[in-house]
């Protein structure tokens, strides 16, 4: 085979690699939504975060508006301090927005839902969401049901 044919084949090989990387970055992984990390951060403190993980989605009305960037335990307030990164195009959450931890489906992953309040002032970068609702821990729920049933009878 002459060197021209070899060079053409190697060029095609490179193109195929670029095509594969395009599929892997755009279709398979979430590179397109990577730009959403450009946003502002909010802090929310929860009594119990259940199984919430970093990179879990943050949704308002079910629409993804950001993600959880870090979760640390705050030893002073004995609460979990969750840092959220919100896309900067959604910058109009009222001050009294409630952050709750929900579960997607019965066995699904946990995410944070934001329910906007009625204040006129909006949350700014590194503000704290004061109204929070912890994750529902199934064992605790069952315990409560059992307790209330035995108490009622």
């Amino acid at each position: 085979m002459n060197s021209r044919a070899i060079e053409i084949l190697v060029g095609l090989f490179m193109l195929l690699f670029l095509g594969a990387m395009f599929v892997l970055s755009m279709k398979v992984s979430n590179l397109t939504s990577l730009s959403s990390t450009e946003g502002y951060t909010l802090v929310a403190k929860f009594e119990n975060i259940g199984g919430l993980k970093a990179r879990a989605p943050v949704a308002a009305s079910g629409v993804r508006v950001g993600e959880v960037t870090s979760i640390v335990y705050d030893a002073e307030t004995f609460e979990a301090s969750v840092t959220l990164s919100i896309d900067k195009s959604y910058d109009s959450f009222p001050l009294d927005t409630t952050a709750s931890i929900y579960t997607a489906g019965l066995l699904g992953e946990q995410y944070i839902g934001l329910d906007p309040g009625a204040e006129d002032d909006v949350l700014q970068d590194s503000d704290e969401i004061t109204l929070t609702q912890s994750a529902i821990v199934l064992e605790r729920l069952i315990g409560q049901v059992l307790f209330s049933r035995s108490g009622g009878s």
Partner: peptide, 15 residues
Amino acid sequence: YWSQMQNSVSFVHDV
């Protein structure tokens, strides 16, 4: 198929 995949595959961490 595609959206569940995109949600859990990270470009930097996995690819």
